Simulated assay, not measured.
Amino acid sequence: MKKILGVCIMIMLILASACGNVEMTSNPNNSSELKPATDESIIPKNTSEYCDIESINLDSEAEKYFYGTWKVEKHLGFANSYNDASEYPTGQKFIGDEIIIKQDFFSSKGLKNYSVYQYELKKPLYEITATCYNSDSFYRLYKIDIPDLNINDVVKVINISDPSTKIRVPLSFFVVNTDRLILLSEATIFELKKITD
C-alpha cells in the first residue's frame, strides 16, 4: 500500500511540473502542440534568487563610489521586521548629519544626536558582506523596502569594523548600482548624498 501511494504521489508531481507554465496554441498542422507561455520582456535579466553571502574586500568599483564625505539627505523608511523606536516615524534626528568614509579613515561623529554611533577609526576594515542581484533577493534577506529599487538593481552591503578589535560599527551601508548610498541604522534607512570626494 505504501509503495502504491508513493508511486501515485511521484506521478502527480511529475504531471504537475510538466503542466506548469504551458499553454495550448492553435496550429493547423497539429492542434495539440504545446508552446511555453513566456513573455521575454517580463523575465528579469538576472534571476539570482538569493544574495551572495560572503565577506570580501571592497572591489575597485565600490571603493571609487563609497569613499567621500556624505550628508544624510532623507529618511526612506524602516525594515519590516521591527522598528527602531528612537527614529519612528520620521527619522528627523539624522537628517543633515555627516559621515566621513575614506580609505584610511572613518568617522560617524557627525551623527551628533546619538552617542552610540560616535566612531572614529583609523585604517577601518571595509567589507562587502552580501551582494544581492535583484530587489526580490534583497528583500528576502533584509526585509527592507528601498524606494525606487528595481528588479535588476545590484545591492552591495558594506560593513565597517574596528581594525584592532574586529568589532563591527553598528551602521551598515547599501551601495545600489554604484550610484546610490543608503545608510542602515538599526531598522531605519536613510538616503545619503556625497558632498565631497
Rank of each mutant, 00 (worst) to 15 (best):
Q103E: 06
Y126E: 00
S81E: 12
I146P: 02
V22P: 00
K71E: 04
K64L: 14
N113H: 15
C19R: 06
I56W: 03
P147D: 03
D39L: 09
S115T: 15
K109C: 12
A130V: 10
V176R: 02
Y65F: 15
I189K: 01
I182W: 01
Y133W: 09
R168K: 13
N113W: 09
F78Q: 10
I128V: 11
V176L: 06
A130N: 07
P170Y: 05
V175S: 10
N27H: 04
F190S: 00
P124S: 03
P163I: 07
F190A: 00
P28D: 09
K143A: 15
T69F: 09
T196N: 07
I151M: 08
E127P: 04
S115A: 05
E87Y: 11
Q103N: 07
I9F: 07
T129Y: 15
L171N: 05
S31E: 06
P28G: 10
A62C: 10
Y50P: 04
E120P: 12
K123I: 13
D52H: 03
D84Q: 11
T69I: 08
T47Q: 06
M10C: 10
E191H: 04
K112V: 14
W70R: 00
I167T: 12
K102C: 04
S17R: 11
K193A: 02
F190E: 00
Y114E: 15
Y50M: 13
F174N: 02
L125R: 11
T131P: 03
V175G: 01
A16V: 08
V116C: 11
E61K: 11
F138E: 01
K93D: 06
S26G: 09
E49N: 10
S31G: 06
L171D: 00
P36S: 08
Y119L: 09
I189L: 04
F138Y: 13
S81L: 07
K45R: 06
I56P: 02
S161Y: 12
G96H: 05
Y133M: 14
E49I: 06
L34G: 03
V7S: 11
K35T: 02
I182V: 07
G20F: 14
L149K: 03
N21C: 06
M24D: 00
Q103M: 15
Y50F: 12
V169S: 04
I4M: 03
S161W: 03
K74I: 03
D39Q: 12
K122W: 14
I160D: 01
A130L: 07
S172A: 13
A187Q: 09
S86W: 15
